[in-house]
Design a protein around this nucleic acid. Structure first.
Length: 596
DNA sequence: AGGGCGAGCCAC
DNA sequence: AAACGTGGCTCGCCCT
């Protein structure tokens, strides 16, 4: 590894450096910034590593102060072209971070990405114990230690020699690291999946830069209503549940010792004092059956709903609105789950309650901007149909019939047009349940059927869909035997279990059924993001949220119709790359607010 | 004080 | 015979 570096501070130096870098097949890329947020922080250094040394570009030398000037500085054009080109490949650890700053500051869309973080995650194959910081990954694959002590130092002013050496080393190490990671990706047959992930980096950076507009005042109004209701419910509950203190007050009455309504311990004790038979847990679905008999339980359940709304989706979200943009810029983890699904934090805008009171706070902005809301119709069940080749499932999808209705007709042995709402509802739960490897016990609890009835329905279900039964059995067995599973893109998930532990074995069986389905759904979404990037370039559209099988795009009102067609086209095309025998269906809507 | 963990509940 | 998968967030509780 060559950590020799030269500082680039003039147009001439930059041109020469870029000329030389352009001759490389791959270069290490790292940036140093004054903050973690591109809207409030400044891009200070760009380090580009080649075998003959590291070029450190000091952007303060190319700017007269303001951020906006960088993007217009003609001297940076060769650099911008280098970054955007598919070659040389840019190797970065968590490339999304650098990509956001490069886009915001230079207007450059990072092209030809190799992300050592994502590669490392893929190789770990879903082992959530393994860490993937550059330090850890470099040690794991190169036996080199990287000192990150300068990372959080101040990059705003004159830089020390130690800072520059750190900066150079971080970029230089990426070259040998990539070699090792490529070997491992090839050995594990993960190259195709890696390309899928790498091509997704820039779309995800774009989503985070775009942010999702949340109507602050509307949100606060909603919170005020909920807070008032919470106070009423809490008072009512304390009146019933609080203990009368033994100590009388000064004026003779008794004092009320309120309980903590959010403490399961105290709650259980209080309910027992009232003679209510408390189940083994105070979970909502366990308490639900008691609500009719005991009004206090009904009140408690409403309190919980309201309390949850207030704590999880309350003031905190307002505080996450970016002062520079007025929008929520959530943090998406591209490989958030072992299956390849995204996860999302600060805030998690994948879990905003479905109720319109909340969803209506999310809209296009400014006025005139619309939301295009597009989601895959029953994508996981279509994947299951494709994998299993079950004729019944395939026929339902190919005919365009209502799958749940068809299932109900077959399982309950009634003509299609005589399926009751209850029967269709059962069938729906059944269809979704099998994707997770549901058992009779859980199904009976979910539906209220007796255990024998539930078993009977499941037996009938799998007798109807023999192909499904066979496929799922085999998937479960394979997972236990191979201790791994793969998705359609080849993504690998390893399972660890103790052969003597029945629970762990059945867990592995369920994972074996679910992982290929959930993971392939994630593959398809990621492919769609890549295709969408091309479709949406040179339009007013920006992706503002992704929720596993849904993409939310914001666009100018006069382009919304055209954009929605592009979104649908890209999503279908992505699905069809993986599903060859089952049709892919995408439902799109154009709306002012995030309401379908 | 602050971290870890489980319970509970939101999304898909 | 068969305990439905993946996350994040907040709380209480327990620990150091």
């Amino acid at each position: 590894m060559n950590t020799n570096f030269k500082m680039i501070k003039t147009e001439e130096e930059l041109r020469k450096a870029v000329d030389s870098l352009n001759a490389q097949s791959a270069i290490g890329l790292d940036t140093e910034t004054t903050e973690l947020d591109p809207y409030t922080g400044r891009l200070r250094l760009i380090q580009l590593a080649a075998p003959d040394g590291v070029s450190i570009i000091d952007l303060d030398a190319f700017s007269n102060g303001g951020n906006g000037e960088l993007a217009n500085n003609q001297a940076l054009l060769p650099l911008k072209r280098l970054l955007e080109a598919p070659r040389p490949i840019k190797i970065a650890h968590n490339a999304k971070f650098d990509a956001k700053f490069l886009k915001h500051n230079l207007g450059a869309d990072l092209g030809g990405v190799f992300d050592s973080l994502l590669a490392s995650q893929l190789i770990s194959a879903g082992d959530i114990e393994e860490r993937h910081g550059l330090e850890t990954v470099a040690t794991r694959y190169l036996n080199e230690s990287v000192d990150k002590s300068e990372r959080l130092s101040n990059w705003s002013f004159e830089l020390s020699q130690a800072q520059l050496e750190y900066a150079a080393r971080d970029a230089a190490i990426l070259l040998p690291l990539r070699e090792k990671l490529i070997d491992r990706l090839k050995a594990e047959a993960l190259v195709k999946c890696a390309l899928l992930e790498f091509e997704c980096v820039m779309p995800v950076a774009d989503i985070e830069l775009a942010g999702f507009y949340m109507h602050k005042d509307r949100w606060l109004e909603q919170l005020a209503i909920v807070e008032k209701r919470r106070a009423e419910l809490a008072e009512e509950l304390q009146g019933i549940l609080a203990e009368e203190s033994l100590q009388g007050s000064l004026f003779g009455g008794t004092q009320r010792a309120d309980i903590n309504l959010d403490s399961h311990q105290q709650l259980t004790q209080a309910l027992e004092r009232l003679g209510i038979p408390v189940p083994d847990s105070t979970r909502n679905w366990k308490l639900q059956p008691l609500a009719a008999q005991y009004p206090v339980i009904a009140t408690l359940l409403e309190y919980r709903t309201v309390q949850k709304a207030l704590t999880s989706y309350g003031q905190n979200l307002i505080e996450l609105i970016n002062p520079a943009t007025g929008r929520l810029h959530a943090d998406f983890r591209q490989i958030g789950a072992p299956t390849g699904r995204f996860s999302c934090t600060n805030p998690n805008i994948q879990q905003v309650p479905h109720a319109t009171e909340y969803r209506r706070c999310f809209s296009g902005y400014p006025t005139g901007r619309k939301l295009v809301i597009a989601d895959y119709s029953q994508i996981e069940l279509r994947i299951l149909a494709e994998f299993s080749g079950d004729p019944g499932f395939m026929a339902a999808f190919n005919s365009g019939a209502d799958l749940h209705r068809v299932t109900a007709a077959q399982v309950f042995n009634v003509p299609l047009d005589q399926v009751s709402k209850d029967q269709r509802d059962f069938a729906k739960r059944l269809n979704f349940g099998v994707v997770y490897g549901i058992g009779a016990q859980r199904f009976s609890m979910m539906t209220g059927l007796s255990a024998p009835e539930a078993e009977n329905v499941l037996r009938k279900y799998f007798a109807t869909y023999r192909g499904l039964d066979n496929y799922l059995r085999e998937a479960a067995n394979r997972a236990v035997h191979d201790r791994q599973a793969r998705t359609a893109s080849g993504r690998l998930v390893r399972f660890r279990y103790d052969e003597n532990d029945r629970q762990q074995i059945s867990m592995t069986q369920r994972n074996g059924k679910n992982t290929p389905i959930q993971g392939t759904s994630a593959d398809i979404l990621k492919r769609a993001l890549r295709l969408l990037k091309d479709e949406l370039s040179n339009t007013s559209a920006r992706i503002v949220n992704i929720i596993h099988d849904e993409i939310v795009v914001e666009a100018d009102g006069d382009q919304a119709k055209e954009i929605s067609q592009k979104v649908e086209r890209a999503m279908c095309a992505a699905g069809e790359e993986y599903l060859k025998t089952v049709p892919v269906k995408v439902e799109t809507e154009i709306a002012d607010e995030w309401i379908k």
